[in-house]
Design a protein around this nucleic acid. Structure first.
Lengths: 208, 208
DNA sequence: GTCTATATCGGGATAGAC
DNA sequence: GTCTATCCCGATATAGAC
């Protein structure tokens, strides 16, 4: 809990977020959420009518905490290189602070695309959502200015950026084992220098 | 099913793999596996004593189908650029043919690192496992030959390669929605040109 | 609003016939 | 080796007292 004396509904949502993001929809027990929130199981149903409804609330919360911050940067008025730098910087911050959020979002969308669809659509229209458009314009501008290679593709670049930011954190259990002898300290060290490594990797790849 | 007239144990394992990789350990019902295998629920317990045991068998199968092929390439005798190309080529092939395998592996390791640990260790010792070591040597060699930048770090490079290969397929539901108006055909097209895009992105980033 | 007690059901696992 | 029937527990959900 980040704040004390939070109202019950807030405590529930926070506890639910902890458990759901860690164990997923099907792996979560209502009892565990109740315990973590310090309340009784039946109170969960008093505030949120069902497990599914509570999950929906959590999913939307996590989603809207994740996407908007990055979109703000992607849609800002800024030279491409600076924008990439800012994006990597801010995005890695968010991800490292919420390491299980990306895998949670991806996994639940994978398991239940239809059930999630309505939540997604609402969340997107709420925030007026066009992430890649502005970024594509910036890429074209940088091309005309001769700053980056002519064969750079905005969509692939965007996906590559997301990939090398998110994946090393999301797949930590796997990568730590196959590449770092499952040594947690080593992996922390590895992640701590990622900001500059990622930035350099991207810029080096596209610059002329 | 890829083969007809398979023995019961094989049919079970195949059906179990389908369901487990799609829905995860906790999301899977034994009944669904039985239905898909065309047999009775209790037969599952006859061959594999419990759900957990069956899951373990599936996890190990998926893991050993995934890792060894890539390791063979990473440990082969080959110039760095050629090795990167071959790796991307072979890895994307495997991933695209088993799109839900990576997210399955990552997710289950995340949810239950301890329970998976023993399986991992056995699988690794079985195949004599040292993925990044040989690759690191190649990187150093290429540096001395003046082929790549001096500040290239082998571990980061390796993780970046894995990331931009796996993530776009694993996070498809999310990426397709936020970047491709949830248009499946568009995303297929996007993925179909990834091999060259990824190869170029990596080589451009490290070459001198 | 919050609790205790309980209804209800789904799913993993077993017994036993064939 | 494969089936039917059944046990039993755990988990969601509700009823009702305070």
């Amino acid at each position: 809990m980040t704040e004390l004396n939070k109202d019950t509904e807030g405590k529930i949502l926070e506890a639910a977020q902890d458990v759901f993001t860690e164990k997923g929809m099907s792996g979560t027990r209502m009892q565990e959420i109740a315990d973590k929130a310090g309340i009784n199981k039946s109170l969960l149903h008093y505030y949120y009518r069902s497990k599914e409804k509570l999950f929906g609330a959590v999913f939307k919360t996590v989603l809207t905490r994740f996407l908007p911050k990055t979109l703000k940067i992607l849609n800002a008025e800024m030279p491409l290189f600076e924008k990439i730098e800012k994006f990597v910087d801010a995005y890695l911050d968010i991800i490292m602070k919420n390491p299980s959020a990306p895998i949670f979002l991806i996994n639940e969308m994978h398991k239940n695309p239809n059930g999630i669809a309505s939540i997604m659509i609402n969340a997107f229209t709420d925030m007026g959502f066009h992430p890649a458009e502005r970024f594509a314009v910036d890429v074209e501008t940088a091309k005309k200015q001769g700053l980056i290679r002519d064969d750079v593709n905005a969509k692939h670049l965007f996906v590559n950026m997301m990939s090398i930011c998110i994946f090393p954190v999301a797949a930590r259990p796997l990568l730590q084992r196959i590449g770092f002898d499952n040594n947690s300290k080593d992996y922390d060290l590895f992640l701590s220098v990622r900001k500059t490594e990622v930035r350099n990797f991207i810029i080096n790849s596209i610059k002329k």
